[in-house]
Computed example of a mutant assay.
Amino acid sequence: MTDTRTLLHSAQRTIDLERQAIDSLRARLNGDFTRACELILACKGRVVVVGMGKSGHIGNKIAATLASTGTPAFFVHPAEASHGDMGMITRDDLVLALSNSGSTSEIVTLLPLIKRMGITLISMTGNSASPLAQAAEVNLDASVEQEACPLNLAPTASTTVSLVLGDALAIALLEARGFTAEDFAFSHPGGALGRRLLLKVEHVMHSGERLPCVARGTSLREALLEMTRKGLGMTVILEGDGCLAGVFTDGDLRRTLDKGIDLRSAAIDEVMTPHGKTARPEMLAAEALKIMEDHKINALVVVDGNDRPVGALNMHDLLRAGVL
C-alpha cells in the first residue's frame, strides 16, 4: 500500500522546486526581456509561436494568452512548418521559438528560412549557447537548475518557467499597449466578462408592445391586468405628455395589501412609486445591475433623453443574459 506521507512529500517537493525555479527566473529578468518586448511591439504582423513536445503545449498557451491580451499571435507546429505551414508566416511576422535544449531539430531546420525571409526571431531556451539562442535577435533565459522530476528528465520545472515567462511577456505588452478590460471583452465576446462589458441595456430590455404601461388615473385593477398580460412583474405609469410618472411592481402590490387598500377601487396614482430608478438604453447592462443591487430593487424603467419610457428590464432578464 502506498504511504500517503510519501505522496504528500513528493508533491511538496515538486512545488518547492518549481517555485524556486520561478524565483530564479525573476532575478534573471534583464534588458533581453525589455528588448524582446520592444521587438514585439514594433512587429507589424503577428507573433508566431513554435515549439515541439511539451514546449509546444506551452507555446500553444502562450500564443493564446498573447492573442487575448492585445498581441495578435498563433501557434505553428515546427514539424508541420517544414511541410507547408511556413506559408502561414509572412515577412512582417515575428517568430517566438521555445526549446529547452535550444537544439530541437525541427526548429533548427527552420532557422535558415527564417533568416532568409528576414523574420525577427526571439528564442526562449534553457541554453544560451545553443544554435537556436545564437540565431535569435534576443534569447530569453528559461533555464532551470533541475527538473522537478526526480530523474531530472521529464520537463516540469522548465515548462513552468517557460509558461511564467510567456505570461510575463503578455502582461508587459498588455500594459505597454494600454489594453483595457473592454478590449479584453472584445476578444472574449462569448465569456462572462464579455457579456458584462459589451452587453447594453437596449439589448435585453422589454420595449414596444412588450413594455407594460398605463396612464395616470388608471385603476389599480387595470394596472394589475396590464402587469399580468406583459409578465414583467411591474408596470410603468405615464404622465399625460408621455414622460415617466412612476412605477408599480410586485413589491408595491405586497405593500398595498399590507396597508389594507381596496384593490378594486384604488387608482394607480395612490400606490405607485413616484418616478423610481431608471436606466438609459446605451447603459451597460452591468451598470443597470449595480443600480438594482445598490437600491435593492428587481426592475428598472429605461428612459430616453426626455425621460420618456422606452423599455424596462428586471433581474431575470439579466440572469438570462448571463450578466448576473
Rank of each mutant, 00 (worst) to 15 (best):
L121C: 04
L132Q: 02
M124C: 13
H203Y: 04
R216A: 13
I107Y: 02
L121G: 03
T120F: 00
M205G: 04
A168V: 08
G305E: 07
L132A: 05
G31I: 00
H316Q: 14
S207I: 00
C243M: 14
D241M: 11
D269R: 05
E147P: 01
F184K: 01
G242W: 03
A42K: 13
D262T: 08
I107N: 02
H57S: 09
Q134M: 14
E137A: 12
D258K: 09
S68C: 13
A81Y: 11
P150T: 04
G276R: 05
G87A: 10
S162L: 09
T90G: 14
R177Q: 15
R5N: 15
G311K: 05
G84I: 11
A288E: 06
T34H: 13
E282S: 14
N314I: 09
S68K: 10
L289Y: 07
S207A: 15
D3I: 06
R19A: 15
E239S: 09
N30D: 15
S143E: 12
T90V: 09
V236W: 03
A97G: 14
E270A: 15
G276V: 02
D32K: 05
L29A: 07
D167M: 05
L111A: 08
G31S: 14
H57C: 06
S158V: 07
M86R: 03
L7S: 05
E137I: 01
M272H: 03
T218D: 09
S207T: 14
A176K: 12
R116Y: 04
G194Q: 09
E209C: 00
G208E: 07
R13Q: 15
T104P: 08
G194H: 06
V95P: 03
S55I: 06
A192V: 07
T120E: 12
I122R: 04
N306I: 00
L140G: 01
A176N: 11
V201H: 04
I297H: 02
P78F: 10
N127E: 13
